[in-house]
């Protein structure tokens, strides 16, 4: 076992952490909000909303 072997395991572990973070938030979001709210976006609106988010409103 040298440092590169540890790096391999470390990379797997970090990948798992990111996967778990995404999946947990996904489940939480789907349970918190109704499907109507989540899919209420229409063409041309998404950019508007991301920008609002960006400006911190």
């Amino acid at each position: 076992m040298d440092v590169w072997n540890y790096a391999e395991y470390g990379a797997w572990a970090l990948s798992a952490v990111f996967a778990v973070l995404i999946i947990l938030d996904w489940i939480k979001t789907d349970q918190t909000y109704s499907e109507e709210v989540l899919t209420s976006s229409r063409e041309g609106e998404l950019e508007a909303m991301t920008e609002e988010q960006h400006r911190g409103t």
């Binding site: 938030d25 918190t32 499907e35 709210v37 989540l38 899919t39 209420s40 976006s41 229409r42 991301t50």
Partner: peptide, 21 residues
Amino acid sequence: RDRYLPGWFGAVHPTYRTPYR
């Protein structure tokens, strides 16, 4: 969002405003 694919994918994350699915 246009239902060209299952509408489930047309969801936006309420906090992050990203097409998370």
